[in-house]
């Protein structure tokens, strides 16, 4: 029996501004470690001049407080996490849910270590409510 709530998560993602300077990423991760924030997923978006570290942790409030105290600029963004079966076509099936809609995936990344047989994908989707509605209505398994 498929239970959508077991597989779809509304997550708060932390975005961290990274200057283009050696050691910035190392410092940010050290600050997170000292705050006891385990990283469940992360990605780095980079441009020629700066980067943005996006991450999911179980302790977002503590992580934000520690990063801010260390002089980092942060922002919380609502993202969607979806577990898909760890098999060929898992992601394609997921994205197929949005077919024919105006929903766009702005970016996506994967959890570092998922449950066995499952992959957790983190997505920034717009419009978010429409995306969630479609995801809850779809039977992904």
């Amino acid at each position: 029996m498929y239970d959508a709530d077991e597989h779809i998560f509304q997550l708060r993602q932390i975005s961290v501004f990274l200057e283009n300077r050696p050691g910035t990423l190392a410092l940010a991760t050290r600050v997170l470690a000292d705050a006891g924030a385990n990283l469940r997923a992360l990605m780095i978006a980079e441009t020629e001049r700066f980067g943005i570290l996006r991450l999911i942790t179980d302790e977002p409030d503590a992580a934000v407080a520690a990063l801010t105290a260390a002089g980092f600029r942060t922002r919380l963004t609502d993202v969607v996490g979806v577990e898909v079966p760890d098999r060929a076509g898992g992601l394609a099936d997921l994205l197929g849910v949005f077919a024919g809609s105006e929903i766009s995936v702005e970016y996506m990344y994967a959890e570092l270590s998922g449950r066995a047989g499952r992959a957790l994908l983190i997505m920034k989707v717009e419009p978010r409510d429409d995306a969630l509605e479609r995801l809850y209505d779809a039977a992904l398994y």
Binding site: Q13, S15, F17, A45, T47, F50, I52, R54, R73, T74, R75, T77, E106, K124
Partner: peptide, 12 residues
């Protein structure tokens, strides 16, 4: 600044 920072690369 905090107000300035956006999660969106294009904004920055």
């Amino acid at each position: 600044s905090d107000e300035l920072f956006s999660d969106d690369l294009a904004d920055v």
